[in-house]
Simulated scan of single mutants.
Amino acid sequence: MENATGPDESGYPVFVESIEADSRYRLVRLRGLGCEPLEREEFEPRVRRVFPDIDLSDPAQVHWEDRPGQWPPWHPGEA
């Protein structure tokens, strides 16, 4: 059984998983929809489509597993 706490268990509408060193994405769990890999540029538009009135700076609404607001380093042209 998985030990990760997602938004369905924690009560957070948005739960951002830990940074993975070998990925440009962060896994983002959206309550009621599951988990999606999102890039920095995709994060806010996707979250706002699902939760239009969300306050992205409110830790009660958006939980970051580590490094809040940070994304893995990646540069265009990298695979």
Rank of each mutant, 00 (worst) to 15 (best):
M1N: 09
M1E: 10
E2Q: 09
N3C: 12
A4D: 04
A4E: 08
T5G: 14
G6I: 04
P7A: 08
P7C: 13
D8F: 07
D8H: 06
S10I: 12
G11C: 08
G11H: 02
Y12C: 05
Y12R: 09
P13F: 07
P13K: 08
P13L: 12
V14F: 03
V16L: 01
V16G: 03
E17N: 11
S18W: 07
S18R: 14
I19K: 13
I19F: 00
I19N: 06
I19E: 11
E20G: 01
D22W: 08
S23G: 02
S23K: 09
R24M: 08
R24I: 08
R26L: 09
R26D: 04
L27R: 09
R29Y: 13
L30T: 01
G32R: 04
G32H: 10
G34C: 09
E36G: 02
E36P: 02
P37W: 08
L38W: 01
R40L: 03
E44N: 12
E44S: 15
P45A: 11
R46F: 10
R46V: 15
V47E: 03
V50F: 00
F51E: 05
F51W: 08
F51Q: 01
F51P: 06
P52M: 02
D53A: 11
D53E: 12
D53I: 00
D53F: 04
I54H: 03
D55W: 02
D55S: 11
L56P: 03
L56F: 01
S57P: 00
S57H: 13
D58E: 05
P59G: 01
P59M: 03
H63D: 07
W64D: 08
W64R: 05
E65K: 11
E65G: 00
D66Y: 06
R67G: 00
R67C: 10
R67N: 12
P68D: 07
Q70R: 11
Q70M: 13
W71F: 15
W71A: 13
P72S: 15
P72M: 09
P72A: 01
P73S: 14
P73R: 05
P73I: 05
H75Q: 15
H75G: 04
G77V: 11
A79M: 10
